[in-house]
Design a protein around this nucleic acid. Structure first.
Lengths: 273, 273
DNA sequence: TTGCTCCTCACGTCACGTGAGGTGGC
DNA sequence: TTGCTCCTCACGTCACGTGAGGTGGC
């Protein structure tokens, strides 16, 4: 016979609170083994204890309830282990970002802001291989990595060579609303058939205030701040997407402090230019 | 003259969304430099850019808004740096817990549950130095560390020696509600004057089912599960606090896999005992 | 018989995001 | 004049926690 446990006993055995257990029942993550139809009392089975203990660990790792459900429902061991290691990888990435943010905070508080020279520049229209998508600010780094991987595959497959560094166009609402259109592009001098997300497009010309950003992309806001101040002080702001040219990036060096990124802020044309 | 920025410009310069900036205004974390009384339009000053960038970094590190406010309001550099490093320490601790949880999850999923032998035991009343408090489950490890430090200071100050290992009593609601009375105690054979939170008390006798838990305290639920199953199967459950005896703990070894903790679950008395 | 355990709503938390609906300046 | 930017509510999100108010079993 199965030994049944009250919700209180089950709570002490799993270190999940009674409120949490009721919530997991409500959302279908962990159904009691039996429910008294008269009183509504929940009963749990001893064999549910390890499942509940696993749930507690997943939740301690901040895995969303839906994902926990998916992992537990996967009777396929391979799929289950994949889901778990995918989550652990996400966590490792977050940890690295955290360390980068700490370093970045230290620099900022020590007053060592980027003081690069602002330069004004006209960029001509550029034929490019590009991927365009609506991207959220938080997922943009991962999106960019994927996009450039795909673009370089297309470049290689076509047997051509990029004309200059890879770059990105960011709609203002990407920053202001946290979601907006982003175009990742690689300048080329030949037309290529569209495959998958990759298309050949002409990146429009622009008049820009430009600054060289040295270091990790987490700190890009410092260069944006510098450009924005410059543009505001000179009253030369114009509409249009923000630009980033990745001169030295993860593709070239594993050390983020070696990254070199040109940031461009749209301006009105210069007189006499 | 101060150059004023629209909320959109300020957003692009700081990489904080417009919604976030309005929220920070509402809660008093970051007041605009000026507000148009007719339209309600917010204006920000260039000198606010580094402050906003610092706020973004603190929030990326999940520092609560109230704490960010406290850190920024502290014009005392020393206090500010203390608050920051306190937060970074908390994050490091969390990281270690995360790694422990990952290890713990691996063990659980590989089916290697604690299979220790359950033993029944009567423990006599024990005169002890104790600290009692209402403690939440999440903060209990830190609370316990502090409590034992204080207790050992008191023991030392009195020039006496503990009679046996330090231990803890946990009210059922500590697990079931996530908050409940906890007593940390060190058995002694002399009365000591109450100082601070420390008092001399008699820990009551108890009839217990006991199992030896080997390894980190994160995994204690496995031993609780084993005891609860044993007690339920034999129908010998009784009221009363749960007990943990810390035979080998952080005080003795830096390696959590070396920890030895006896867990006690209250039972009815044995026949013939 | 009396606490004790358990139950179900309903609402709060935290830091914004998501629309809806509307207004002033170039 | 027409978009565009900005504005203010009001409500949603996520995983429970916090009471309130009430019932069945030892």
């Amino acid at each position: 016979v199965t030994v049944l446990l009250t919700i209180g006993e089950f709570s002490r055995m799993t270190h999940l609170s009674v409120k949490a257990l009721r919530h997991y029942h409500d959302v279908g993550l962990l159904e009691p083994a039996a429910i008294d139809p008269a009183t509504g009392y929940r009963s749990y089975a001893v064999r549910q204890v390890p499942i509940a203990q696993a749930i507690r660990r997943f939740r301690d790792l901040d895995m969303p309830i839906d994902q926990v459900k998916a992992v537990l429902d996967a009777d396929d061991t391979v799929a289950r282990n994949q889901a778990i290691s995918a989550h652990l990888q996400r966590m490792e990435r977050e940890l690295q970002e955290t360390q980068a943010t700490v370093a970045s905070l230290r620099i900022l508080l020590e007053g060592g802001g980027a003081a690069g020279v602002v330069e004004r520049r006209f960029v001509a229209p550029t034929r490019s291989l590009a991927i365009k998508d609506s991207v959220s600010f938080v997922e943009s780094e991962a999106w960019l990595t994927d996009a450039f991987e795909e673009l370089y595959h297309a470049v290689e497959a076509a047997g051509i060579t990029p004309v200059s560094a890879s770059a990105g166009l960011y709609a203002p609402e990407f920053f202001e609303a946290g979601v907006g259109d982003v175009i990742a592009f690689v300048p080329v001098d030949a037309d290529i058939e569209a495959t998958g997300r990759v298309a050949t497009v002409e990146i429009p010309a622009a008049e820009l205030a430009v600054v060289m950003h040295e270091g990790a992309l987490t700190d890009l806001d410092q260069s944006y701040g510098r450009l924005g101040a410059y543009v505001a002080e000179h009253g030369i702001g114009a509409d249009g997407p923000l630009r980033e040219y990745y001169l030295v990036s993860a593709a070239e060096t594993p050390d983020p402090t070696q990254y070199r990124t040109e940031v461009g802020w749209p301006t009105t044309p210069r007189r006499g230019a």
